[in-house]
Design a binder for these strands. Sequence first.
DNA 1: GCCGCGCATTGATGTGGATCAAGGTTGGAC
DNA 2: GTCCAACCTTGATCCACATCAATGCGCGGC
Lengths: 233, 233
Amino acid sequence: MEPAVDLTGNVPLFEGLDPSLLERIEGFTETVSVGADQVVVNQGEAPQHLHILLDGQVALSSTAADGTTALVEVLHPVDHFVLASVLTRLPYVMTARTVTPCQLFAIDAAALLDLVEHEPALANLLLRSVSRDFGTMVQQVRDLKLRTAAQRLGCYLLARVKDPEATRAEFRLPFDKGLLAARLGCRQENLSRAFAALRAHGVETHGSRVILHDIAQLRAAAVPDEPSEAGSL
Amino acid sequence: MEPAVDLTGNVPLFEGLDPSLLERIEGFTETVSVGADQVVVNQGEAPQHLHILLDGQVALSSTAADGTTALVEVLHPVDHFVLASVLTRLPYVMTARTVTPCQLFAIDAAALLDLVEHEPALANLLLRSVSRDFGTMVQQVRDLKLRTAAQRLGCYLLARVKDPEATRAEFRLPFDKGLLAARLGCRQENLSRAFAALRAHGVETHGSRVILHDIAQLRAAAVPDEPSEAGSL
DNA sequence: GCCGCGCATTGATGTGGATCAAGGTTGGAC
DNA sequence: GTCCAACCTTGATCCACATCAATGCGCGGC
């Protein structure tokens, strides 16, 4: 932990915020280094810090009353996490565990809340972020209810492609397939089969290296029916 | 639509808010009556109003690019909806459709946002609500990934019981089983079988009337393993 | 009372995915 | 190089759920 902290420019969560406000937030922010596979925040505990991931990967998972656990999201720099819990002052709804060694900012929750109460600009910024987080959860619920694992994998791969115009793409999976399977809501074995199924649609894999030969075809496969505009329930 | 509106005391979303602020919100709020099975807001459109359900039931569903639709939540009075979309000024992430004839408040989005920007108390209140909404989505993702339909039904029934001490309970399902099935993420036929499976655990049904004979046993069935405190990923 | 329409249940069958159990690959220690 | 431990893939089998197809069962109209 080192007190020297610079939030300027690098943290999307605070993008566009007044420099003087940023400075005040820096005053109660610390940089933290954590080894791999460490619990950063524990579901059920009272929020102490808002975290921002600077380097490494963090897995968010939700544990049910019976102890079973579902991986909800894998974060990359520069994502924030547990924002919603900090803002509600309610116990963390998920557990955050490092996948790799990580560097992160820990922003004191009480001090931040205090600032939020008096600075509408900050409150609004956070409001937007929580709302966006909410939207990604809605999307995940929808995909779990409607799509097969292969389709979810296809969507995930397509989302890795930045250029919307590209007809082919090549990249490396950001983490191992066990984690990817959990993120997609299936077992590793099934993920393997999903990759095998997508092979027929121009998806080639060598270890963690992925090549999409025909993005249009993959898109068609991941999105089964043609977009009907019927607004039926 | 009638301009006479009273937000005081009845709307949890604004609970504890300064009366003068409430009054200002009332200034750009309208009461709306809508028949059954009408679309109130359409996914993809720009947010015009924040809605508060006063009477009736509203179904929220999310539509994928391919036109398939997943029911995400069924609302009861006095729930709000599309708060997150209003706050982000981004297109609605879900479609809201009335199930029964409804009465609702429609609060002008632009005016509300304007107020939010200058009134930290209001911003904080909404922050809490969006965060709570986020939490329920996380829970739903977890349940979809981990539980069977029968277990989800069990949890749903247990959640209908207000008294945590009760050993038995009797109540009426708030809507028909087709909707309940969609909410739980399964087909009507499967819900029927789930009810049949729970019959062995003290769940008795007569149409929409439900009797839970042994809440403890039902809880044990809906929550398969014993609560292990192991914090494994 | 009778009829007919919707909703609810029940059964038969097919598919997605979990689970169990081997093999195969890769990479690092030595 | 050998050995070993992760990780990945493949196959066989089972379970949860969807789907298709009959029925039952209320309930309002008449």
